[in-house]
Amino acid sequence: MIMDWIWGLLGGLMIGAAGAVYLLGNGRIMGASGIIGRIVDAKGSQAFEAAAFVAAMIAVPAVIALIWLPGTETHLTSDWLIIAVAGLLVGLGTRIANGCTSGHGVCGMSRLSPRGIVATLVFMASGIVSVALFRHVLEII
């Protein structure tokens, strides 16, 4: 348990360092939903930069999992209906709100952005309600 927390802190420092590089280097907010959204919109050079970001974001964990952490898995449910509904909600919600855990959460809260703080509190509360409802009341996850 304690080791999980230490790895959480170390991984978190890396995520924060990644956001710092993107901000100080390119002057941009490192938000996963925004970066993926720029590829979905396919806007020329912005989409190319976003694609490079996403490619590295897939490739580096792929190499780490292959070399150091064989057997890594996401423990995602095998129920495709639940996965599809969840994916749809995440895609829809993060783009309507213009940010997710990285953009509003990490980047927004660390500059004490009122919108980032409010969004994070709302999606955290909603996530807690979601798990309570689907796990403990409906018992489908």
Binding site: T74, L76, V90, L92, A97, C100, T101, V118, S130, F134
Partner: peptide
């Protein structure tokens, strides 16, 4: 947008345990 979007996102996030990153 901010509030409704964040509510929808949270529901999906809890349901599968995945966010975009």
């Amino acid at each position: 947008r901010l509030i409704t979007g964040s509510i929808l996102f949270g529901l999906g996030w809890g349901l599968a345990g995945l966010c975009p990153g």
